[in-house]
């Protein structure tokens, strides 16, 4: 369904995507896995025709560069964060993007599309009045207009809190079951395990591995890095506690970073729970040979 052949994209002299080739058959859900700056988003943007690139990308029958409009007709795209006219009402936005796909939605269809993503009754709300999770669900509803065979998802849960993230992933998982081809970028292990049928690991623009999700968890045995978002008052205490118990914890702008071995990912949670320190949020990031994460998750 999607064929990426030897795609290279440079910003200046630095290659963001470096000779990546991928073939995503119909019905497959492929995760692009990698740290920030690994080239996931850049590759998706090439697929969407937003960036010029070397190499070839085909979507269905269409070349993404030469025949971009037709190629994008096959895609539904959900960005990290929906940025659109803030004053627009949800229903209006849905209708607008439907028109771009050549559809004029009846009122009942608008309602149905919104209900499909759990936004029933919100058609008259303005985008700026929607919460982050609702915005993402609206973006998903827009992506699903016209029932495109391919969904492109770019770090779609990055701006959501833990609760919203779970709901959203569950929604996507249901969609996967309907035979859609999915190509998504993520650095969250839970997402990948929940959604992917196949994982391609990217590092500095290169595809370094292509494997089933189960293999990936094994491969990550080398360890991951746990990002914990904590109240500022308790951070120093938490770092001290974790070090006492053998974790290499260190402070970071908004929280603390803890490299964890594959088998002990829950360890730090236990430690902090015992000390009654509340974890506001967390994130699990694959460690990629060294401390590339100078800051926490977005």
């Amino acid at each position: 369904m999607i064929r990426i052949e030897n795609v290279t994209k440079r910003f200046g002299r630095v290659p963001a995507v470096d000779g990546v080739s991928l073939d995503v058959p119909v019905g497959e859900s492929l995760a692009l896995w990698g740290s920030n700056g690994a080239g996931k988003t850049t590759l998706l943007r090439c697929v969407l025709g937003l960036l010029p690139y070397q190499g070839h990308i085909r979507i269905g029958e269409h070349d993404a560069r030469a025949d971009g409009k037709a190629a994008r007709m096959l895609l539904g795209y959900v960005p990290q964060e929906l940025g659109f006219y803030d004053d627009l009402r949800a229903g209006e936005a849905l209708r607008f993007f439907a028109r771009l796909k050549g559809l004029r939605l009846a009122r009942s269809e608008v309602h149905a599309a919104l209900a499909n993503v759990g936004l029933d009754g919100h058609h008259a709300k303005r985008i700026r009045e929607l919460s982050g999770g609702m915005k993402q669900r609206l973006a998903l509803a827009i992506a699903l207009v016209g029932d495109p065979p391919v969904l492109i998802l770019d770090e779609v849960t990055a701006s959501l809190d833990a609760c919203g993230r779970g709901e959203f992933v569950a929604m996507l998982a249901r969609l996967r079951g309907q035979g859609r081809t999915m190509l998504f970028a993520s650095h969250r292990l839970d997402e990948v395990t929940a959604l992917a049928t196949r994982v391609v690991m990217l590092e500095r623009g290169k595809a370094i591995a292509d494997l089933p999700p189960a293999d990936m968890t094994r491969r990550l045995g080398a360890g991951s890095e746990l990002h914990l978002l904590l109240d500022a008052a308790v951070r120093a205490q938490a770092v001290a506690l974790l070090r006492e118990r053998g974790f290499e914890a260190r402070l970071n702008g908004r929280g603390i970073l803890v490299p964890v071995p594959e088998s002990q990912k829950a360890g730090p949670f236990r430690v902090l729970a015992e000390a009654r320190i509340t974890i506001a949020d967390f994130d699990l990031v694959p460690a990629d040979g060294g401390h590339t994460h100078s800051e926490g998750t977005p």
Binding site: G49, R72, G83
Partner: peptide
């Protein structure tokens, strides 16, 4: 600047 442009151009429009 608001990221709207990329989102718009990701649709089937030239």
């Amino acid at each position: 600047e608001r990221g709207m442009l990329a989102y718009l151009l990701a649709q089937p429009v030239s």
